[in-house]
């Protein structure tokens, strides 16, 4: 029983179908995944493999019918305050100032407490001084920082990130990867990040979940031993993991006659 409580997210035998234009599309097939407290799990796979759907199911934004999905020991039946989410597009509301965007999910708090939380999280993501800016005044990377601050402001036990750096340029992306690592260390928040960037998955993940193309199935879960040692990108392990993941995704591509979307 105590072992059960170690898991913040538990997914068992999850299947998911969508009905689209009269066709039944199988999106996820027999997903089994446990996520422990304080872990950083990355999910990597082709576009359209259902990894974002999996994340939204964990978060409660998408419903599921078949299987078990538990968050903090309870079946997921909708979004909750202890589960934050960051999307690929920052999704800051253009009509709210950055401070109001970051405090968007803070409900029922006295004003001072709310402001203190907003301030604290803006500092955490390095956006001090931008409280009164509007989203259009921020660059892509800064907007995504604000979105992360919004996701964390509620003090969630878990933060789900849906390709949060996918739309950023390469240099900003690397910068943001460093930032999110730092934030995770400082806050100790459990994080699950969906990505199609294999390097990102290896650099950030304690564990990497590799998913096959539609229907999305878990091919393998790779535990990264050397995470956070600073020289990951040019280490032998890095190359080893990269080759391994490429192998999974490439094999997939050949089987299903897909074009490979990745460049080495």
């Amino acid at each position: 029983m105590s072992k059960e409580k170690d898991y913040i997210i538990k997914v068992e035998h999850l299947n998911k179908h969508f009905i689209s234009g009269g066709n039944d599309i199988e999106v996820l097939r027999d997903i089994n995944l446990q996520i422990k407290h304080g872990e950083f799990v990355t999910i990597v796979g082709h576009s359209g493999c259902g990894k974002s759907t999996l994340l939204k199911i964990m978060c409660g934004l998408v419903s599921y019918e078949d299987g078990v999905v538990e968050r903090n020991g309870h079946a997921v039946d909708g979004p909750g305050p202890r589960c934050g989410m960051v999307f690929q597009e920052h999704r800051l509301l253009p009509w709210l100032k950055i401070k109001d965007n970051v405090g968007f999910g803070l409900k029922g708090l006295p004003k001072e407490q709310r402001e203190a939380l907003v301030k604290e999280h803006l500092e955490l993501v390095g956006l001090k001084g931008f409280e009164n800016s509007y989203p259009h005044q921020l660059s892509g990377g800064m907007s995504q920082r604000a979105a992360i601050a919004r996701g964390l402001a509620n003090n969630p036990t878990i933060l789900l990130l849906d390709e949060p750096f996918g739309a950023l340029d390469a240099l900003t992306r690397i910068q943001m990867q460093k930032e999110i690592t730092r934030i995770q260390r400082e806050q100790g928040t459990t994080m699950v990040m969906v990505t199609h960037d294999i390097d990102e998955a290896i650099v950030l993940g304690d564990r990497i979940v590799v998913m096959s193309a539609r229907p999305g199935q878990i091919k393998d879960i790779i535990t990264v031993e050397t995470r956070g040692q600073g020289h990951m990108r040019n280490s032998d392990e890095f190359t080893y993991y990269k080759k391994k993941i490429y192998g999974y995704l490439f094999e997939d591509a050949q089987e299903e006659q897909y074009e490979v979307e990745y460049m080495i």
């Binding site: 978060c59 934004l61 909708g78 979004p79 909750g80 305050p81 989410m85 999307f87 597009e89 999704r91 509301l93 709210l96 968007f104 999910g105 409900k107 509620n154």
Partner: peptide
């Protein structure tokens, strides 16, 4: 995408409308 953000933070119908 914006409606989903309101849903994520469980805003009431009225708050979703005004915000």
């Amino acid at each position: 995408s914006y409606r989903e953000v309101a849903k994520l933070y469980k805003l009431s119908q009225w708050k979703t409308f005004t915000k």
